[in-house]
Design a protein around this nucleic acid. Structure first.
Lengths: 335, 335
DNA sequence: CTGTTAGCGCATTCAT
DNA sequence: ATGAATGCGCTAACAG
């Protein structure tokens, strides 16, 4: 099956008439090498099409040049967008991401985490998930860690996530500024802190505008599309009037939009919608469907950069950037 | 940063009062070990929470326990679905996937491929893409290779893909059997063979049913959502009547559906739609939007299984299964 | 600046 | 069935 030529560093050394150490040095740039020798080495490498054995490198150096990524559901738009960001952020560096999928199962997630650790990743990016903070706390002592899309108090400075309250506040305020007073809210699963904080942001925005929140206008969803559709049915059934909907995420905004379609309600003529996340499929449903700008990809990219910083012992950049990100204007998307 | 305890195989050997060789044997199961010693080893491993160093393993054994996956666009529903399948198919095995993204750029793709090769993956799964068959032909001599969602004649037996003609034929026939005679077709980018073959399937199905194909009813798209919407606008502009649309993929079916919505046309009362791929977001648009069942995930899973077979020198299973898959009935999806 | 010398942790003959 | 010895290919002190 394999016809591998197995060129090793010794072959290069021999051909370039230098020692393996020198070859190693030009490879890693870990020390200055005289120009002529350096050239000879590069020439030999090129001629023999030499590829260093990454295992030997890792074994000897202790570094794997690998970043573990623990995601929760490959195939989910939001998580995948973060992956995109991570890939982009890592591009250009010597590190490759290796991703494991928790599939929303705690057990699976733990296995996946262990797999990553067993592979001696140099850094770890955990996207959301539900492994206990305590477990992660132990992990962070083994390997540089960044958590995305989830806020773990104990790991505060290493978390990249939206300021959920702020995002919701702004989204709601956006609607208010456009003249809406009766604004419905489809929450996420309230068992998750994210959903709770977004609801709080919504409520606060109303209060600050002097609008009395109406429980009739709030429906609990679960962050999935279908729940958005169901929520709209629920709202319509209740009969309470509303001119706008703030959905806790775009997937539900998408579902809500579909349900409105079915009921013959136009968006935004009859009802305006705002969601959070900028999920492409949802954004596409528009104009009319307004979303916060694309945090997922940027969070992923930020995570990658942060990990690289940790690996280089550089200070972490402002992971608080999430604030700025939110500070961007909400925009109406057009096809 | 690291507080690693660095338990090595020697520690286990010492604690279990056996040689490293024996420990290695129980680890890999490469030879029978007396029950008592075996137990002692396992006990020691457990007590010390020993984790074999995967680099040392790879270096010594020559295997990386890694499967390279070359995808084209992380974040794209179709490709991600294949990734899901691959992850599932690899689950349970000792192999972990490591994915690189070609991002639709030939140069990027080649770099990504090289990265994977440099990491000494034991197997390689290439999803779509545009690297020359010749290059892959050379690659296949270095490492077991499976190609998904793309048919490369030279690699025939190692390709997993839809029978595009068949799929289109069945989709079209499905509509015909439901009484439609004036069936429009939104093609993929006709620069791609897939799109051409799907169109052929469509035409053939019409012919076989005694329906004369009408060029007015065929619009070229590019596999993306927006082109589906534009195609519908185009069709409506042409003024030629049609009662059904066969879109070459679900993304365009999705766009088409949106456009119909905007024009006030109901689906399926006014127009029926059929697409191929079972992209979740599109399938969700329904009932009314009919799709071929979910080939992407299954193709990914098949690819994973195929790779594992190659690695075990087992005969490849029928990659032709794509035919059976298509043979499933098209189904109307319900929320 | 560069060559020499040791391992890195494990899988694998080869004997026994 | 098991231990001892060898080496996978490379990096990292250590001298010079």
């Amino acid at each position: 099956m394999a016809e591998e030529t197995k060129v090793t560093i010794d072959d290069i050394a021999e051909r370039a008439k230098v020692s393996k150490s020198t070859v190693s040095r030009v490879l890693s740039g870990s020390a200055v090498v005289a120009q002529p020798k350096r050239a000879a080495v590069l020439k030999a490498i090129d001629e023999l099409d030499y590829r260093p054995n990454i295992f030997a490198q890792s074994l000897a150096s202790g570094r794997s040049l690998t970043i573990g990524v623990l995601t929760q559901n490959i195939g989910s738009p939001f998580y995948d967008a973060i992956l995109v960001g991570i890939h982009e952020g890592l591009g250009g560096s010597d590190y490759s991401p290796i991703v494991a999928d928790g599939r929303w199962h705690l057990a699976t997630e733990q296995t996946a985490l262990q797999t990553l650790l067993d592979r001696r990743v140099d850094g770890l990016i955990v996207i959301g998930g539900s492994v206990q903070g305590s477990k992660l706390l132990r992990t962070v002592e083994q390997v540089p860690l960044i958590v995305v899309a989830r806020n773990i108090p104990e790991l505060g400075s290493h978390c990249i996530c939206l300021d959920n309250f702020e995002a919701a506040y702004r989204a709601t305020k956006h609607l208010i500024e456009h003249g809406h007073r009766e604004i419905a809210h489809i929450t996420g699963a309230l068992s998750q802190g994210d959903a709770v904080r977004r609801r709080e942001g919504y409520l606060q925005a109303l209060s600050d505008a002097g609008i009395k929140p109406d429980p009739e206008l709030v429906v609990e969803g679960n962050f999935r599309r279908q729940s958005g559709a169901l929520a709209v049915e629920m709202l319509l059934t209740r009969g309470r009037m509303f001119s706008a909907i703030f959905a806790a995420n775009d997937q539900m905004a998408f579902g809500a939009r579909l349900a409105l379609f079915r009921r013959g309600l136009r968006v935004p003529e009859d009802v305006s919608i705002v969601g959070i996340d900028d999920e492409p499929a949802s954004a596409y449903m528009t104009p009319p469907l307004t979303t916060m700008r694309q945090p997922a990809i940027e969070m992923g990219e930020a995570a990658a950069h942060a990990i690289l910083c940790l690996l280089n012992d550089e200070p972490l950049p402002n992971l608080q950037f999430s604030m700025e990100l939110i500070a961007r204007e909400t925009v109406a998307r057009h096809i």
